[in-house]
C-alpha cells in the first residue's frame, strides 16, 4: 500500500514536472487539441439541434392551420369543424381561439404584448387546425382549405404548413452526421499525432532519467505512468477548453436563433452536460492513448 501510494505520488509529480518543464509545447498541444475538441463538440451539438428542429417540424408537418376571419360566428366555425371531421383524409380537428394563438406564439418566443397594446386588439387570427392521416394529402387539403370563404386572406397566407422544409432538414442532418463523423475521425487522428509528439518531446527531455530508471530496474509501467498521466491531463484540459466554448456558443447561438428566427428550439441542458462529460472522457482517453503510443518506442532500453 505504502509502495503503491509512493508510486502514484511519483507518477503525479513527474507528470506535473513534464507538463511544466515543457510548458510552451504542452500549451500549444492543449490549445490545438482544444480547437479540435471545439469542432467535434460543435458538430455533435449542431447535429443534435438540427435534429431537434426536424423533430419539431415533423411533429407539425401533418398539421394545416386554417386561419379564420375575425367576423365568423361560432356556429359557422363549428359547421366547418364538423365538415373536416367527417373528411376521411383528416385524422383530427381542433380549434384555436385568438387568445390561445397569442399564448402559443409567446411560447415560441414572440413578444406580442406591445403590438397588442399599440393596435388596441389582438392581431392574430383564430384557426381550425387539421391533422392529416397521410402526409401525401397535405397539398390537396391545403388547396381546398385555401379556397374556403371563411379563410382570412388579409395576412397574406391563408393556411400554414411547410412540408418542403422536412426533406431539406433531413438532407442537412444526413450531411451533418456524415461530415461530422468524418471530421471527428480525422481530427481525432490529428489529436493523437499532436499528443504523441508532445509526449515524445517530454520523453526526449527526460531521456537520461528514463535510461537510469530502466537500468536500475524500474518496470515498464512505472516509466510509462507519468507520461500517460501527462497525456490524460493535457487531453482533459483541451476538452475543458473546447467544451467551455461550445457551451457558451450554444447558449448564445440558441438565444439569437430564437429571437431572430423564432425557431423555438429550447436549451437542452442534459444533452449539453452529457456532451461535456463525453468530451472530457474522450479527451482523457485520447491523451492517454496518444502518450502510450508516443512512449512505446522509447521503452526498449
Amino acid at each position: 500500500m505504502r509502495g503503491l501510494l509512493a508510486s502514484v505520488r511519483f507518477a503525479l509529480v513527474a507528470a506535473g514536472q513534464n507538463f511544466t518543464r515543457n510548458l510552451a509545447v504542452s500549451m500549444a498541444g492543449v490549445f490545438t487539441m482544444g480547437l479540435i475538441m471545439l469542432l467535434v463538440g460543435g458538430t455533435i451539438l449542431l447535429t443534435h439541434t438540427v435534429d431537434a428542429i426536424l423533430n419539431q417540424q415533423e411533429a407539425q408537418a401533418d398539421e394545416i392551420h386554417i386561419y379564420l376571419q375575425d367576423s365568423l360566428s361560432m356556429r359557422t366555425i363549428a359547421d366547418y369543424e364538423q365538415r373536416f371531421a367527417h373528411d376521411a383524409r383528416v385524422n383530427g380537428v381542433s380549434f384555436t381561439t385568438k387568445d390561445q394563438a397569442v399564448i402559443l406564439a409567446q411560447q415560441r418566443g414572440l413578444q406580442l404584448q406591445s403590438a397588442i397594446n399599440t393596435l388596441g386588439s389582438n392581431p392574430l387570427p383564430a384557426s381550425i387546425d387539421l391533422h392529416v392521416r397521410n402526409l401525401n394529402d397535405l397539398t390537396q387539403l391545403n388547396s381546398v382549405a385555401k379556397s374556403l370563404p371563411i379563410v382570412d386572406t388579409s395576412s397574406g397566407s391563408a393556411t400554414d404548413y411547410s412540408p418542403h422544409v422536412i426533406p431539406v432538414l433531413k438532407t442537412v442532418i444526413t450531411w451533418t452526421v456524415w461530415v461530422g463523423t468524418i471530421l471527428s475521425i480525422v481530427l481525432g487522428v490529428i489529436s493523437l499525432v499532436i499528443i504523441m509528439n508532445t509526449i515524445r518531446t517530454a520523453v526526449y527531455i527526460r531521456r537520461t532519467e528514463i535510461e537510469i530508471m530502466k537500468l536500475v530496474g524500474a518496470g515498464d509501467w512505472f516509466v510509462r505512468w507519468p507520461f500517460i498521466l501527462e497525456g490524460v491531463f493535457g487531453g482533459v484540459l483541451a476538452a475543458a477548453f473546447g467544451a467551455t466554448i461550445v457551451a457558451l456558443a450554444y447558449r448564445f447561438v440558441l438565444d439569437q436563433a430564437n429571437t431572430q428566427a423564432f425557431l423555438g428550439v429550447s436549451f437542452d441542458g442534459p444533452f449539453l452536460t452529457a456532451l461535456v462529460v463525453l468530451l472530457v472522457v474522450f479527451g482523457a482517453a485520447l491523451g492517454g492513448f496518444g502518450s502510450f503510443l508516443g512512449i512505446r518506442r522509447f521503452l526498449h532500453v
Partner: peptide, 29 residues
C-alpha cells in the same frame, strides 16, 4: 551499473540522485 559519462540528473542534488534509484525500484521504502 556505472558508465564513463556518470548519467546523473543535473536538476537533482547528490542525495536526490542516489535516492532516485530507490524511489523507482522500491517506492515507499
Amino acid at each position: 551499473i556505472v558508465f564513463q559519462d556518470y548519467k546523473l540528473l543535473p536538476k537533482l542534488t547528490v542525495a536526490q540522485n542516489v535516492a532516485f534509484a530507490l524511489q523507482v525500484t522500491r517506492p515507499g521504502q
